[in-house]
Design a protein around this nucleic acid. Structure first.
Lengths: 222, 222
DNA sequence: TAAAGTATGTTGTAAATCCAACAAAACGGA
DNA sequence: TCCGTTTTGTTGGATTTACAACATACTTTA
């Protein structure tokens, strides 16, 4: 496990915990390292929730399957990224998704019960681990909330305005640069790119905003 | 505080912790009870994140304000419900929302740093508290993920199918009863009710589903 | 700098959605 | 049962969006 410590310490789960402390905890967390071949399944949907994982090398895909068996990729994670932590933290019984290797990979698995419930071994940094996990899940939650609020709007214009108002608020200024390309923004808002471009042009014409590429300026409204 | 213990113990944050233990923890969590009048602000947006709250009586509203100052109600919580826990758990510096009383209310506030980071007082049940918090946030996360996947679909039909497939999977059967009225379902999916009703009729005609009121049956597809 | 590639803007048409208004059905007391 | 209320289904017209196709602008690199 020592050879992977450089990757492991980058994982948000272990932030604020030193290499030595991580190694000390490894027994307590029942950490195992497994090598998986491309396309091999690491955790299958419906499996009991036993493990939380960290990608050490390679990459994994989180996959969801619907009633008819159609598969969709939910996420792809690379080195130092954590997976299956939400199901583990929610105390779910069965995994709602599968995790498979998208390349030959090395994966660190840990016992999620051990990780979530404080052990009695006087393992001081365990508390920090749980706090890190809580923070990771809560941050994801805030991002989801924010996105949900935006894409719940019915029209493209409303979605755009909700997004731009959010950015303006974050930057505390009516003038700001957004971190997305047009295509990325369209994907984020769940709309068609060209239709969105057209809507931006209309909003400009209607005097709602000024914009040039990724620079936007909100104008007064009544 | 004792007089509120019946409400407090119902709060998910304290599940698995006895009344006596809650009372023991109260000093550690710096719990205070405040009475607030209707429309009074309990936590203002931009305030430093110091408190997590539980409604003891009455009700509170979580309010978000956009760049222009337009207010929208994000949520309304009643007795035994927790608020401001996500910002606290995410380690946010400033509150992203305001919380105000929608009636004359009694509110329990606790120091969120104390709640989230294990104290050194050998307070055994503190760990349980953190585990409860983690679980609450993670469960919310899973619900949001699920909803996000559904409302990210572009068309009404796709949204409906995504939702119905999800229900079918949960019930492990192609035939099931949904827990929403038409209006509720439309709100959940973020579409117009009447348009949705029409779409359901079309899906029935196209041989995708059978349905009668809230009972649905998925048919074979190619 | 030229050329190729990528990102963005524009437009017309077909399709989907919203909205409003109303019809039909289901429901809940009196 | 009858009546009023609520929910659900249906329809047509106005609006909005997606999609495709293409024009323009910007980047990269040979």
């Amino acid at each position: 496990m020592k050879k992977y410590i450089q990757v492991i310490e980058k994982c948000s789960l272990f932030s604020g915990i030193s290499r030595e402390e991580i190694l000390e905890m490894s027994g307590c967390l029942k950490i195992t390292v497994v090598k998986v071949a491309k396309n091999q399944t690491i955790i299958a949907e419906g499996d009991p929730v036993k493990y939380m994982g960290v990608v050490l090398s390679g990459s994994v895909r989180v996959i969801r399957e619907d009633y008819y068996g159609n598969r969709t990729i939910v996420a792809e994670m690379g080195p130092a990224e954590l997976f299956a932590e939400t199901a583990a933290a929610a105390g779910a019984v069965k995994m709602p998704v599968s995790v498979t290797a998208s390349q030959d990979s090395e994966i660190m698995l840990m016992d999620c019960r051990k990780a979530i419930y404080s052990c009695c071994n006087g393992c001081i940094f365990h508390n920090r681990l749980i706090a890190n996990l809580l923070q990771a899940v809560a941050e994801k939650n805030m991002l989801l909330n924010q996105k949900m609020e935006i894409i719940s709007k019915r029209t493209t214009r409303e979605k755009l305005m909700a997004y731009l108002l959010y950015e303006a608020k974050k930057k505390n200024s009516g003038e700001f640069v957004i971190p997305y390309s047009r295509q990325e923004l369209a994907d984020y808002l769940g709309v068609d790119r060209s239709a969105m471009s057209a809507e931006i042009a209309r909003m400009r014409k209607d005097g709602l905003i000024e914009s040039k590429k990724s620079r936007f300026k909100l104008l007064e409204h009544l």
